[in-house]
């Protein structure tokens, strides 16, 4: 499996683009994260299907919760990472921050997409509709649009400094806006109380434990993918720059 590691000879000439790793070092961090993810996933599956008791109100489909919630949280965490990386780039002007930003943006978009799909399926089981305009789902949808906008902007503007700066600004605005959007949709909804996706009330400890294990698993997977995507960004930048130098 083509895991990313630091290994090209020409990197020595382009010191910002990679440390002097001219030998092919084994990708320890990646392999460790992948292994831990696998263990975590097995544990989570066991806990979700065999350990946690069936929810009294919603029944079996409620178990979607144990995947849906961590995925949604990671999707939002990823956006925070994009913003922090963007601010880092604006401050330090080091493109490595931007690689992290682009990586997390792509990952976040994937996670939010999955969160929307699982949330929709969950809503279908609890309320019979594939979609409801409750604050959480709606804000997740808006966040999805912001992610797509970010990816489109970066794609159109290419691998330039302007592109990185604009992306950072978009992320900052987006991060500040998301809580405001959530609240305004909440206010809007109090006038039209409708179906809401979620598990109300306090949660018993077995539920919390399972949720936490699942969350840790997905965080590990996110971290693993972040490393791969970061290296991908690095190599793509390197390739583009090298190609430009000979043409």
């Amino acid at each position: 499996m083509a895991l990313a590691n630091r290994d090209t000879q020409t990197e020595r000439q382009y010191s910002t683009i990679g440390t002097a790793g001219q030998n092919t070092r084994p990708p320890i961090a990646s392999l460790a994260l992948l292994t831990l993810t696998f263990i975590g996933m097995m544990t989570s599956i066991f806990m979700i299907f065999l350990y946690v008791p069936t929810d009294a109100i919603e029944g079996i489909p409620q178990r979607i919760f144990y995947f849906h919630v961590p995925i949604a949280w990671i999707g939002m965490l990823a956006f925070g990472v994009v913003t922090v990386a963007g601010i880092g780039y604006l401050w330090k002007k080091d493109e490595r921050w931007d690689w992290a930003a682009r990586a997390s943006a792509e990952l976040g978009a994937v996670f939010i997409t999955l969160a929307l799909i699982t949330g929709s399926i969950w809503g279908k089981t609890t309320w019979g509709t594939w979609w409801t305009w409750d604050a959480r789902l709606t804000t997740t949808l808006i966040l999805w649009f912001i992610y797509i906008g970010y990816l489109m902007l970066r794609s159109y503007m290419g691998r330039t400094h302007e592109s990185a700066r604009s992306g950072a600004v978009l992320a900052i605005i987006g991060l500040i806006d998301v809580p405001i959007i959530y609240e305004s949709v909440n206010w809007w909804r109090t006038l039209h109380p409708q179906a809401e996706v979620g598990t109300p009330g306090a949660l018993p400890p077995s539920v919390v434990l399972t949720l936490m294990i699942s969350l840790v698993t997905f965080t590990l997977f996110y971290s693993f993918l972040m490393i791969q995507l970061y290296q991908l960004q690095r190599m793509q930048t390197l390739a583009q720059r090298l190609r430009a130098s000979v043409e």
């Binding site: 649009f145 912001i146 906008g149 978009l170 987006g174 806006d177 405001i180 959007i181 609240e183």
Partner: peptide, 8 residues
């Protein structure tokens, strides 16, 4: 870019 952000 603008539509999602001006939802409020």
């Amino acid at each position: 870019l603008v539509f999602p952000l001006i939802v409020p």
